[in-house]
């Protein structure tokens, strides 16, 4: 059998190409650890490792971007979005999946899923007006918007998965005197675990890295409601020329998601694949 022989030529090719992925990241890391005098524009300077690691850049970046406050804002928004999306969309998906034979639920399903085609820019201008009119142009409103915008994808995923969970489980529980509400929490919700992971990861990535929605929803709130991506944008316009400080700030903003990736790489990758292929 040739199938188990390592293909060294391809391995070398893949290695060389992976350098293209790593160079920009390596550059970002060393720039964040250099001092301005080590920057220079000759070619060797770009790749040279700094003599002394300037961790002071990170401390400066933390204070100038108010890092702990903005990271906390991003974290609160992301965690709330994930919890709300997982809980609420799995409930509605259960109701839809178990009643697909009824016209109301079938139409609800098509209605929710077809909204996937609506680009955010289409809704952006009227939404800004609507949210400020309702006085929810704040973190609460933002989480509400993530719930709405993740709903199509999540319902599609949950309903698809629920089709494979046999109704006889429900029937048996009904005979024991349970109601739909109890059945959902006690039996179905735990069985949906693999889909919870997928939906949670997709929601977390979408909300953590998002720039445009927080920008239009939160911009009237001043400093108390700045997310990490927004902070980079503000920072760039104020301190854009100090690259060391700027890159330290980018590294800080990326660190949480990189750590998360390091520990949950497998789940993240399979989450993204499931989200697209299912």
């Amino acid at each position: 059998m040739t199938a188990h022989k390592t293909n060294w030529l391809t391995t070398i090719l893949v290695t060389v190409l992976s350098v293209l992925i790593l160079i920009p990241l390596y550059m970002a890391i060393i720039i964040s650890l250099k001092k301005p005098s080590e920057m220079g524009t000759n070619l060797a300077n770009f790749f040279r490792f700094p003599k002394i690691l300037q961790f002071a850049n990170f401390i400066d970046a933390i204070t100038t971007t108010n890092f702990f406050q903005t990271a906390f804002n991003s974290l609160v928004i992301t965690v709330c979005s994930v919890v709300v999306v997982v809980l609420l969309t799995s409930i509605i998906s259960y109701a839809i999946a178990r009643n697909m034979n009824k016209r109301f639920y079938r139409w609800t399903y098509y209605y929710l899923v077809s909204a996937m085609f609506v680009p955010f820019s289409m809704l952006m201008l009227p939404l800004v007006k609507q949210l400020s009119f309702l006085r929810i142009d704040n973190k609460f409103g933002l989480v509400l918007m993530y719930l709405v915008f993740q709903m199509s994808m999540s319902v599609l995923l949950y309903v698809g998965y629920l089709k494979n969970i046999t109704v006889s489980l429900d029937e048996a529980a009904y005979l024991d005197g349970a109601n739909s509400w109890q059945i959902f929490w006690k039996i179905i919700f735990p069985l949906l675990k693999p889909m919870h992971a997928t939906v949670a990861i997709l929601t977390a990535l979408a909300s953590w890295n998002d720039l445009l929605l927080p920008l239009v929803v939160l911009s009237g709130n001043g400093n108390s409601a700045v997310t990490l991506p927004m902070a980079q944008l503000v920072f760039q316009s104020q301190f854009g020329t100090n690259y060391n400080l700027a890159f330290a700030s980018y590294m800080l903003a990326s660190l949480p998601v990189l750590v998360f990736y390091l520990f949950a790489q497998k789940q993240i990758i399979s989450g993204v694949v499931n989200g697209a292929v299912k």
Binding site: Q232, S254, I268
Partner: peptide, 11 residues
């Protein structure tokens, strides 16, 4: 893929 588009743009 997991990094933010804005930061990748700055790099």
């Amino acid at each position: 893929y997991v990094l933010g588009g804005l930061i990748v743009g700055y790099i």
